[in-house]
Amino acid sequence: MSDHSENLPAFCHPASPKLLYAVFFALIFLTLLTVAVSALGPPMGMPRAFAFPIAMIFATMKAFLVCAFFMHMWWDKGFNILAFLSSLLFVSLFIGMTLMDTSHYQDTIEAFDVQQLTGVEIAE
């Protein structure tokens, strides 16, 4: 993967330009594909609602390419990768736990909406 010549120190891993260009074009391709799916709708008669999950899958593929090759994670130490992935775990915990406890004030908001709609003055 990397053109690692003899006189470079062990921690120096220059990525081959071919690989970097290939990754770049793959990223561009996925971006254009994402925009196309968003603009034209998902392919093969899939429901419209699939456009968003497809966009997120493409984004994750792009994120993988950037992490693995541009960020040299492919050749990096296991501990660094672990630290990075753990942050994703904590963010998903953060999002997941918070999602389980929402709408606590929804009643108050709805009451306010009703008051706004039935009141003399309609908001803005």
Partner: peptide, 20 residues
């Protein structure tokens, strides 16, 4: 390198709040 990775972890958590 370990230092910058740890910094990037804090950055992800930083943006994580907005993603929440």
């Amino acid at each position: 390198k370990l230092g910058i990775w740890l910094f990037l972890v804090t950055e992800i958590l930083f943006f994580g709040g907005l993603f929440v």
